[in-house]
C-alpha cells in the first residue's frame, strides 16, 4: 500500500466522518428546535389554564402527548397519499428550520444558502402536505378546515408581507442574517420594531403573525366545536403526532422569522429568548379574545393591519 492510497483512504474516512458529524448536527438541531417548540406549546397550555383560573397540565404535557400519539396504532386504512401528505407536512417545517439563521446554534450555516422568498415558500410546504392528507381523508369537515386555513392564509399574508417588505426596503437585502445584522441585539431602539416608520410595518406584520400562528382571534381553521377540528378531523395516532411536531417546528420558524426581521434576533440564544417573548404576547391575546367568523377575520386582516403596514412600507420607500 503506497502513501497515496493511504492518504486517499484517510481523506475518504475524514469525509465520511465529516458527513456523519454534519448529519448528527442536523439531527440535533432539528430535535432541539422541535423540543423548544413543544415546550412553547406547554407554556401555552399552562398559561391559558392559569388565565382560566385552573391549575393546568404540567409544562411538559406536549411531550407526553407526542409520545402517546406516536405510539398509537391508527385504525385507518387510507390511500398511501394520505401518508405522503403527512410526511410532506412534517418535512416542510423541518426544511424551513434548516434555512433559518437559528442553525448556527450547532455551527451550521445553511441559512447563507437561502433567502426570504425561499423561506416564505418553504413555509407552505407543511400546510400544503396536511391539506393534501385532509383532502385524501375525504371528510367534508377536513375540506372546510383547509378552506378556512387557506382563506386565513390569504388574509394574514398580505399585512405580513407588506411589513416584511418594508424592512427589505430599508435594509436592501432579503438575506435573513444580514437583516438581523442591521439591527442591534439587545437595545430596543436599534430594533426595526421601534424605528419610525418601520414601527407601522411591524405592527401590521405583528397582527398578521397572530393569524399565522392561528391563535385567537384568527383560529377558525381549527374550530373543534364547529367543524370537528377541521384539517385534523381524520388524523389520529401518529398522523396527529406528526401534526403536533409540525406545529412545534412551525412555531419556531414563524416566530423566529418575525424576531429576525423586527427584533434584531442575531444569535441563536437571543432569537430563542425573543421567540419566547413573542409567543407570550401572542398567547396573551389568545387567552382573552374570542374567535372571528372566517369572513370577518379576512376583512379585518385585509383592512386595518394591511393599511398600517402599507403606510409603513410607503413611508419607508418614499421617505
Amino acid at each position: 500500500m503506497n502513501t497515496a492510497t493511504v492518504a486517499g483512504a484517510a481523506s475518504a474516512g475524514a469525509k465520511f466522518l465529516g458527513a456523519l458529524v454534519l448529519t448528527l448536527k442536523v439531527l440535533v438541531y432539528l430535535i432541539l428546535m422541535v423540543a423548544i417548540g413543544l415546550f412553547l406549546m406547554g407554556i401555552y397550555r399552562k398559561f391559558s389554564a392559569r388565565v382560566q383560573y385552573r391549575v393546568g397540565p404540567p409544562i411538559w404535557q406536549p411531550y407526553i402527548d407526542v409520545i402517546k400519539l406516536l405510539s398509537k396504532k391508527d385504525a385507518a386504512t387510507k390511500n398511501w397519499v394520505f401518508d405522503l401528505g403527512a410526511v410532506m407536512g412534517f418535512g416542510g417545517p423541518l426544511i424551513l428550520l434548516l434555512f433559518l439563521p437559528l442553525d448556527s446554534i450547532v455551527g451550521l450555516n445553511f441559512h447563507t444558502k437561502g433567502d426570504l422568498i425561499l423561506i416564505l415558500y418553504l413555509a407552505v410546504v407543511g400546510p400544503l402536505g396536511f391539506a393534501l392528507a385532509a383532502s385524501v381523508g375525504a371528510s367534508p369537515w377536513g375540506a372546510i378546515g383547509v378552506g378556512r386555513a387557506l382563506s386565513m392564509m390569504l388574509g394574514y399574508e398580505l399585512p405580513f408581507i407588506l411589513g416584511i417588505l418594508a424592512v427589505v426596503a430599508k435594509d436592501g437585502t432579503i438575506m435573513l442574517h444580514k437583516v438581523a445584522a442591521a439591527q442591534s441585539i439587545w437595545n430596543p431602539a436599534g430594533w426595526h420594531y421601534f424605528q419610525w416608520p418601520l414601527i407601522l410595518a411591524a405592527i401590521g406584520a405583528h397582527i398578521g403573525l397572530q393569524g399565522m400562528l392561528s391563535e385567537k382571534p384568527f383560529e377558525q381553521s381549527v374550530a373543534p366545536h364547529e367543524i370537528g377540528s377541521g384539517i385534523m378531523v381524520e388524523f389520529g395516532g401518529r398522523y396527529l403526532g406528526m401534526m403536533l411536531l409540525m406545529k412545534a417546528a412551525s412555531l419556531m420558524a414563524e416566530l423566529g422569522l418575525f424576531a429576525i426581521f423586527f427584533l434584531g434576533a442575531t444569535t441563536p440564544l437571543d432569537t430563542i429568548i425573543k421567540i419566547f417573548i413573542l409567543y407570550i404576547i401572542a398567547i396573551s391575546f389568545d387567552a382573552v379574545l374570542g374567535r372571528f367568523r372566517p369572513d370577518q377575520a379576512f376583512v379585518v386582516l385585509w383592512k386595518w393591519p394591511t393599511i398600517i403596514a402599507l403606510l409603513g412600507l410607503l413611508l419607508t420607500v418614499f421617505a
Binding site: L70, K72, G92, L98, F99, K113, L118, I174, G237, R238
Partner: peptide, 29 residues
C-alpha cells in the same frame, strides 16, 4: 448581498427534511 438561493443545498436539505419526517413516521406505531 441581496439574495441567494443555492438549489443544490435546497435539494439536499429538502431530502433531509423529508427523510427525517419519514423516519419519525416509520418509527411511530
Amino acid at each position: 448581498g441581496f439574495s441567494i438561493v443555492h438549489f443544490g443545498y435546497l435539494a439536499i436539505l429538502f431530502t433531509v427534511g423529508i427523510l427525517v419526517a419519514l423516519l419519525v413516521y416509520t418509527l411511530a406505531g
